[in-house]
Measured scan of single mutants.
Amino acid sequence: RDEMEEWSASEASLFEEALEKYGKDFNDIRQDFLPWKSLTSIIEYYYMWKTTD
């Protein structure tokens, strides 16, 4: 399955904003920016995001 497909463009930009603010503190990212996403989903997205450019 492709996690990228499940993320909207606005969620992707929220994620990048959160990453700038918190770094890899995924709990804070989830709490402040993406509370409707699971922690697992955020972490999986991060690793996919990191490996695609």
Rank of each mutant, 00 (worst) to 15 (best):
I42S: 04
K24F: 00
S8L: 01
T51D: 13
L14Y: 08
W49L: 13
I43C: 07
L14M: 04
E20F: 06
E11A: 05
D53N: 14
K50W: 01
K21C: 04
L39T: 08
D2R: 09
A9R: 08
A12G: 05
L39R: 08
E3R: 11
Y46I: 05
F15T: 02
S41R: 01
K50E: 09
Y46H: 10
N27I: 15
R1C: 13
S13E: 14
K37W: 02
E11R: 01
T52D: 10
S8P: 01
K50Y: 11
G23L: 03
K50G: 01
E17V: 06
G23V: 01
A18M: 05
K21N: 00
E6V: 15
W49T: 14
E11K: 06
E17H: 03
D25N: 14
M4N: 12
M4W: 05
E44V: 03
L14W: 00
S38L: 04
S38K: 02
D28N: 11
E11V: 04
S41A: 11
E44Y: 02
Y22M: 03
T40S: 09
S41D: 13
E17T: 05
L39K: 07
I29V: 08
I42V: 07
E5G: 07
T51Y: 14
E16M: 05
A9G: 04
F15Q: 10
D2H: 09
Y22F: 00
D25K: 15
D28C: 15
D25V: 02
S13V: 13
W36L: 03
D2P: 05
W36K: 10
R1I: 12
L14G: 01
E5L: 08
K24D: 11
S10Q: 10
A18W: 02
F15N: 00
Y22I: 13
Y47M: 09
W7Y: 07
Y47K: 15
D25A: 15
D25C: 12
S10I: 07
E20A: 12
D25M: 10
E20W: 05
T40D: 14
W7C: 00
D28S: 15
S10C: 06
T40I: 03
E3S: 14
D53C: 14
D28L: 15
E16K: 08
K50F: 05
Y45H: 13
G23W: 01
L39S: 06
I42T: 05
S13H: 10
S41Y: 07
A12S: 08
T40R: 12
A9W: 07
T52L: 09
A18K: 06
K50M: 11
M4T: 07
A18I: 00
R1K: 13
A9I: 09
K37S: 05
E6H: 15
K21Q: 04
D32M: 15
Y46L: 02
A12H: 12
L34S: 10
E5Y: 12
L14K: 11
D25Y: 08
Y22S: 07
K37D: 04
E3Y: 15
I43A: 11
I42G: 05
E6Q: 11
S10A: 11
K50R: 09
R30Q: 15
Y22L: 06
S10E: 12
D53K: 13
E20L: 11
S41T: 02
G23A: 06
S38Y: 04
W49E: 13
L14N: 05
T40Y: 06
I42D: 02
W49G: 11
M4I: 10
D28A: 15
W36I: 01
E16D: 06
I43H: 12
E11S: 01
L19I: 13
Y47R: 14
S10W: 13
S41F: 06
E16P: 05
E44W: 00
M48T: 11
E17C: 06
T52W: 07
T52M: 08
L19P: 01
F15G: 03
E20T: 10
Y46M: 00
Y47W: 11
E3L: 13
T51L: 11
D25E: 12
T51N: 12
W36Q: 08
L14R: 05
S38Q: 08
E17F: 07
K37R: 08
A12T: 10
N27H: 08
L19S: 04
S10K: 14
E6Y: 09
T40C: 09
L19E: 02
R30I: 12
D25L: 03
W7D: 02
E3C: 01
T51F: 03
W7K: 06
E11Q: 02
A18R: 01
W7Q: 00
M48W: 10
I43K: 14
N27D: 13
F15P: 01
S10Y: 11
M4F: 05
W36G: 07
A12V: 13
I42K: 01
E6M: 13
S41P: 14
E6D: 08
K24N: 14
T52N: 14
E6S: 09
E11G: 04
Y22T: 05
A18D: 00
A9S: 09
W49Y: 13
Y47G: 12
K24Q: 12
W7H: 01
E16I: 04
M48S: 12
D25Q: 13
D32C: 15
S38H: 08
W36H: 10
R1M: 13
E16R: 08
S13G: 12
T51K: 05
D25G: 07
E20Q: 07
Y46C: 00
F15E: 04
R30K: 12
L39Y: 06
S10L: 12
L19Q: 09
I43P: 01
D28G: 13
A12R: 14
T40G: 10
Y47Q: 14
T40F: 01
I42P: 02
F15H: 15
I43E: 15
S41N: 06
D28E: 14
M4Y: 02
T51S: 12
Y45S: 06
G23K: 00
S10M: 11
W7A: 07
W7F: 04
E6I: 01
K21M: 03
D53P: 12
S8W: 09
E17P: 03
E16H: 10
K50A: 08
Y47D: 10
E17W: 03
D28H: 06
K24S: 11
S10D: 11
W49C: 13
D2G: 14
K24H: 08
D2F: 11
D25I: 11
K24C: 14
R1H: 07
M4P: 07
D25P: 02
E11F: 01
I29T: 08
E6G: 09
Y45D: 07
K24E: 11
S38W: 00
Y47N: 13
G23T: 01
D25T: 02
W36N: 10
I29R: 13
E16N: 05
D2W: 09
W7P: 03
L19G: 12
